[in-house]
Amino acid sequence: MAVVEAEGLARTYRTSTGVFRRRTLEVEAVRGVTFEIAEGELFGLLGPNGAGKTTTIKMLITLLLPTSGTARVLGYDVARQPREVRRRIGYAFGGDRGLYERLSALDNLRYFAELYGVEPREQRRRIDFVLDLVGLAGRERERVEGYSRGMRQRLHIARGLLHDPPVVFLDEPTIGVDPVGARDLRATIASLVEAGKTVLLTTHYMFEADALCDRIAVIAQGRIVAEGTPADLKRTVADLTVVEIEAFGASEHVIQRLRGVEGVASVAVEEQEQAQLIRVQAASGLELTQPLLRELDGARVGRVAVREPTLEDAYVALVTVE
């Protein structure tokens, strides 16, 4: 039996704007998402901002009611049996908010231990365990208001694991954490799965998804556009090569010209500090470096590299709307 099942899950938001002439806007954030997560799987949900990732997770953790479709966690319906679901899941959304600033981390955890029904005798042990797990041991008596971003992030995760839930939902867990700390957190997440938990993870870091996830679903504009193992997804762009060009001062016009070069599948530009990193995806086998550089004539060009596509390229290809 799948641990998490979503079937045609959809959510529309209705918002009104304007004071005098109220207009109602309907935003379809999630338009029918179907997937399954098996027991012990580390499942990745990837997508650009606004794709519907957070909305999907919120429905799964019972904070939002779906407008249509169903979802079940461990067999319990998220809409009709929320309490059963809540007992068995943990989640961490991260961010600066969501913690009681005035209290210490320890008090925050004690309170949520109470709310999650952790046995009083167990509480101290569990609290110490999760603090140790996320690397906050020794700092738990400080008030949260003095915590750095990374520490808050870890406290969110600790809270999600207090009651030892079999299913854990993590939203961008390593964001805002320094590289060394992030590596530790990733190891922790991997260890959760080794211990038999089922984890749903969202992230923007492709290497993280590649390294950690057993399976990935890519969501864009409220729909799943691809699903499979990281290897599967990379295969979708296997017949492409990527030409990376470091350029200085390439105008939009020039970028457009690049798109027009024969054989080019897509062009993505990443603004870096001094330069732009232009990634051109093209069918493999084509020698496009010269034609591309010709179009860039006029702009200063730095490094040029031709490489195999990564998961990130697959992702970009899937979610870019031209």
């Binding site: 953790i61 904070l63 809540r86 959304f93 961010g95 908010r97 969501g98 009681y100 029904g117």
Partner: peptide, 10 residues
């Protein structure tokens, strides 16, 4: 921002 975490508990 703790209303959601509170209501997400059982």
């Amino acid at each position: 921002g703790t209303l959601a975490p509170l209501l997400a508990t059982p």
